[in-house]
Design a protein around this nucleic acid. Structure first.
Lengths: 171, 171
DNA sequence: TAGGTTTGTTTCAAACTTGAACCAAGCCCC
DNA sequence: GGGGCTTGGTTCAAGTTTGAAACAAACCTA
């Protein structure tokens, strides 16, 4: 079958998206690097942990939630641990498991960085969109995200699609 | 002023966006790495050059078009040059200038990779969107991109806003 | 219950990115 | 026409990401 190239509308949409996504990520990284000394992903790790009842999550769950590879997470968590913002404990029920727990210091840093971060997100994104567009944005990217059905950043791993893990929360 | 946190709608939109954007970029990188031996950005460099009348562009113009820093571009171009996919020439009119030119080999590689790339973009994104959503996507990210008014990845450089360069095309 | 497979995580080297210098070459203007 | 600022690009070290092993603990299943 001969390639179905993008239509002009699709091209415009694609380019606008790629360009703006790059600018947004860069701006976010720069802002957080400045004010919290860490890139956006690292902030997201802290934020994710903070929203959990016990402020702790297993590595795999964290990786899946953030849509990143386990090895990327390992590196990031090591750094954050070194900085004292979280702590690694072993899961007592599954000795393979490792649990990342937000420390008080981590919580403090997070809370201190949050306002600036939110302000940036707002000024980059939401301040430029109408309420309808916010809804459209959600629908569009929810649809896109659903296309991955659990593959996540871990595709490429020969991961059988017909049986998915269900990681005990182990909290 | 006390922080204006994100509304629930904004939160949902933001999270859906962040997650899906991560998945998309990863999938794109993986696909191109597999089939063309280079990450998405590198492919974009070749693609950008190919669309130019002479298949050549000055480094700064290229960096601005792609919304990346000059240093990132320098590194990428060095690699692509080493691979023989493009060539660096000096601008005769401005001896500081460096011009990246797509080689025939680069064009070949690009053309060979393009169908698979387009197919991926389609399956990740456009296959999951209605035509209206494609339009919305364009509008949303055009609006977001316009928020940057020429700052681009080169902010942080103390760049005066009230006088912008206009790089002679020098082709 | 031994042996093989799967799962959770880390490790390691190679590739890439960042940001702050650095270095020329143009520009400006007295 | 000689400083001094700006612009175009590269370089370098430090930090991050990638993907393919490596490992160890669970989980089968014969």
């Amino acid at each position: 079958m001969t390639t179905r190239w993008l239509t002009p509308e699709e091209q415009r949409a694609w380019r606008a998206y790629i360009a703006a996504a790059m600018l947004v990520e860069d701006a976010l990284d720069r802002q957080l690097q400045q004010e919290a000394g860490m890139p956006h992903l690292y902030y997201s790790i802290l934020a994710t942990l903070s929203e959990t009842p016990e402020r702790r999550l297993r590595m795999t769950d964290l990786a899946e939630g953030l849509k990143i590879t386990r090895s990327r997470l390992t590196y990031a968590v090591s750094r954050l641990e070194k900085d004292g913002l979280l702590r690694r404990e072993n899961c007592r029920w599954d000795k393979r498991g490792s649990i990342a727990t937000l420390t008080d210091e981590g919580m403090r840093v997070l809370e201190q960085a949050a306002p600036g971060h939110v302000e940036t997100v707002r000024s980059l994104l939401f301040d430029r969109l109408t309420p309808e567009q916010v809804g459209q944005l959600e629908e569009i990217f929810t649809a896109v995200g659903e296309g991955f059905q659990g593959e996540g950043a871990n595709a490429g791993t020969d991961d059988v699609p017909w049986r998915r893990r269900s990681s005990k929360s182990c909290s």
